[in-house]
Design a protein around this nucleic acid. Structure first.
Lengths: 247, 247
DNA sequence: AAGTGGTCTAGACCACTCT
DNA sequence: GAGTGGTCTAGACCACTTG
């Protein structure tokens, strides 16, 4: 008598190593929602027998996914699909002198349902004229305004945020995106530059028009690689600092 | 009859895995100069038998050194100690609109042998008052000044640079450091900030006093982890740009 | 105690580079 | 063809977490 085991096929490698093909197959299952963010994958031994490869090969595949930031492994507990980026990640570019353990606060200044301008539509991978949510947001530290943000979100997936009061929104957006819209931000690309602030940008920050400012433009992507946010953040250039290590 | 093989001992692990201890032992031999930058290490199979470990374990150790940036492996050729940082690494923070294939040029504005000020001595790990080389350097792109730099170098290892004409110096410093002083810069930490330029800083750059400037402060380290350079670079803030990806 | 990931072994075979 | 690193296997044993 033969026992029946679940067997999962994966595309054999077109020039790819077996563990790379395995990693791609596992990634596809994660993106498809088979294992939601925060949940555990089956044990590596199980996955190995399922895919009919040696344990070491499956380990290589999982290590690859760890390096790619898709999953994280915890000794003795298991392999988990990573939750998205935590939030407050914009503050890492700034050094505001306030109580160090200070919680950042947020205030939504405006919220509009608008047709996407061409530049925004291109960034978000939408057709020009598709509906988006435009937000203006002020971030405060110890009740002092420090960052002014303009966000563009595709309405098809962020529709829940178009309704209800914005006064009750969380101070951190990404956890709220996950909870209310099922959108997990897994990757963000920040482009940093400097520009003089206009009056409209400077006043909410308590600065004067013409003050030097930092401009961070961010594109944020979900698990599947779709751009789900286009954001421009402005702050006082004198508060900017960032450290890079090169090897 | 027994054949005699070279056997290299390494400290058994005080809480370290065997491959981590192996990596540390190999790193020590590289730092000691047994395999100079650019040269090849023995084959992994040889190293494995020398250290009396399985091939896979030695591979883990070498992979660790690759991840740390100490060596690089080339399929079919061997394992090589990495040369230092190439140079021109400061330009990656700026976007000067000129011919894209433009070679950056350098001009040494001043060179002094001076006693290290306290702040510099601390950064370089010297006693206050030890002798250092202070350089001012202007970097040009298409004959346009773009960056102004102030460098502090410990004289004990950079003595060869205190003699002779600075007019003949290379445009890239790090390869010259390696060739003339045997100093290989393997790691650099850049701290980016913002400040308004003084007249003395702005004039050489063709800007006006009070112009917004980017300030990059760099500590550069050699193979052994010694800080061998402390540098401050200033440039037009409007030319600054940098991209960071977070996951 | 049971289940998880982490380390280590000893081998076979493949892919690439140089001469 | 000889020598290098890269992949894959099949197992043993260890270390950590949880019930």
């Amino acid at each position: 008598m033969t026992t029946s085991h679940k067997v999962v096929a994966f595309d054999s490698a077109p020039g790819l190593s077996r563990y790379a093909a395995l990693a791609a197959a596992l990634r596809a299952r994660v993106v498809a929602g088979e294992w939601p963010p925060g949940s555990a994958l089956p044990a590596e031994s199980l996955l190995a027998t399922e895919h009919q490869v040696a344990l070491g090969t499956m380990r290589r595949a999982l290590e690859l996914l760890v390096a790619q930031g898709l999953v994280e492994r915890i000794h003795g507990r298991g392999t988990f699909v990573r939750q998205g980026i935590a939030g407050a990640s914009m503050l890492r570019f700034f050094r505001f002198d306030s109580g160090s353990g200070e919680m950042p606060r947020s205030r939504i200044l405006s919220r509009q349902r608008v047709a996407a301008p061409a530049a925004v539509a291109r960034r978000l991978g939408l057709a020009t004229g598709e509906m988006v949510l435009r937000l203006q947001r002020l971030r405060l530290l110890a009740d002092q305004p420090c960052l002014l943000e303009e966000l563009w979100l595709p309405l098809d997936v962020f529709a829940p945020l178009a309704e209800g009061s914005t006064a009750e929104w969380d101070d951190l957006l990404y956890p709220m995106f996950a909870r209310r819209c099922g959108v997990h931000v897994h990757r963000a690309v920040d482009d940093i530059g400097f520009a003089v602030l206009t009056a409209a940008q400077a006043i909410p920050l308590g600065l004067a028009a013409g003050h030097p400012g930092v401009v961070v433009q961010r594109a944020a992507y979900d698990l599947g690689g779709r751009c789900v946010e286009w954001r421009t953040t402005r702050g006082d250039a004198h508060a900017f600092h960032y450290t890079v290590t090169i090897t």
